[in-house]
């Protein structure tokens, strides 16, 4: 049974607690520049579910699956040379497929199990540098990189990304399939192949 004196004691305790809180030191400001709109750095590895278009999580999942599959097969015994060929985007979206291949290449290079040679897209920059060193007359003869010494790739990576989209007005279903093949350049045979399938469904 609560009496009037009990209530008085409780109120006093509450008010003294509030006073203690208000007199505590304010938190220190973080070294950030912020305006009205709240902006924060997020977790770059978090599952991105903003829309069901191709996103960062799809890119990361594809790259992880492909590199994992390549590394566990043991096809890279003896650190062979590999180059990146075409990666076709057969979806209706604009997707920078080079980004997927860059992620795969980065992980494979960091694994130390394989050496990458210049891809077709990267070749012109290499040729330009060789020509600058050998034909400009600006460099000491013995210090220049020699023409005709490049190592050719034993394997070539070719991929494609496709999608199937279904939309009935209330539900949108997107199915992505990324297929990657590794060809033996000399023999023209497929030495490894894998695919990653992703289903994303959104409801309105």
């Amino acid at each position: 049974m609560l009496t009037r004196s009990h209530l008085l004691v409780m109120l006093l305790a509450l008010s003294s607690g509030l006073t203690a809180c208000s007199s505590s030191t304010p938190p220190v400001a973080s070294p950030v520049l912020r305006f009205d709109r709240e902006v924060n750095y997020g977790d770059d590895k978090a599952v991105e579910l903003v829309t069901n278009e191709f996103g960062s999580t799809d890119l990361q999942m594809i790259a992880e699956k492909m590199t994992g599959s390549l590394l566990e097969t043991g096809i890279f015994q003896g650190r062979p040379t590999v180059t990146i060929s075409t990666v076709k985007n057969k979806t209706s979206e604009y997707i920078d497929t080079t980004n997927i291949m860059n992620s795969i290449q980065t992980t494979l290079v960091k694994s130390g199990k394989v050496r990458f040679t210049r891809s077709i897209n990267e070749m012109q920059a290499g040729v330009d540098e060789l020509q600058r060193q050998n034909q400009s007359g600006l460099y000491k003869q013995h210090s220049t990189a020699k023409i005709g010494k490049m190592t050719a790739a034993k394997y070539s990576l070719e991929g494609e990304l496709t999608s199937i989209v279904k939309d009935n007005g209330s539900t949108k279903d997107v199915f992505y399939k990324f297929t990657l093949k590794m060809f033996d350049v000399e023999e023209g045979t497929i030495e490894w192949q894998d695919e990653k399938q992703i289903r994303k469904t959104s409801k309105r």
Binding site: A46, V47, L49, Q60, E64, L71, K110, S111, G112
Partner: peptide
């Protein structure tokens, strides 16, 4: 650098296998 987070649905009473490969030896 650490793997990305993955989302996976598990139906009632379902068992699903997830796998991963280390980035290097």
């Amino acid at each position: 650098d650490g793997e990305s987070w993955k989302q996976m649905g598990l139906y009632g009473l379902q068992l699903q296998t997830v796998k991963s490969v280390a980035p290097n030896s």
